[in-house]
Amino acid sequence: MLNCKKVKKLLSRYLDGEMDEATSRELKAHLEGCVSCARELSGLNAVKNALAAKERKALPEDYLVCRLKERLHSAEEVAPKWQWLPDMGNLSRRLIPVPVAVIAVSLAFLSATLGEFDKVDIVDNYLFQDNLSRAELSILEESNVTLDSATRIVFGINGNQWR
């Protein structure tokens, strides 16, 4: 049997329709006989409705595409040396050793040039490290470039521009 403490913990899941039918039935039965839990549910439901009714923002349709193009084309944002990144996956899939080796060398060089980096943030790890192929990983390893510094090199520019 469900007690009030358990029911209250389950109310959000119930509200979001993430509950299996058997538990849902049990919960409904409890709510019919329990004022305290029913009140809790209506409070949570009111919050959910308030958020659903919250104002929505919008950008003009072409605005962001234009802004992104400007930024990606400006020399500051994407210096030529960064531009290989979107193609990296394709390169390794086609197993072309030469360009990949060039990448490794330039990473090693940049790593030496730029020195120590701050701890890389989660997003950059996620984007970059999670998506490296085994070939790319072994190249980094052989070049003595840590994943963190490789990631920082790639995303360093983006990471610093909030100021």
Partner: peptide, 8 residues
């Protein structure tokens, strides 16, 4: 970030 990350 998505632009740069989509390659992978």
């Amino acid at each position: 970030k998505a632009y740069h990350g989509l390659g992978g």
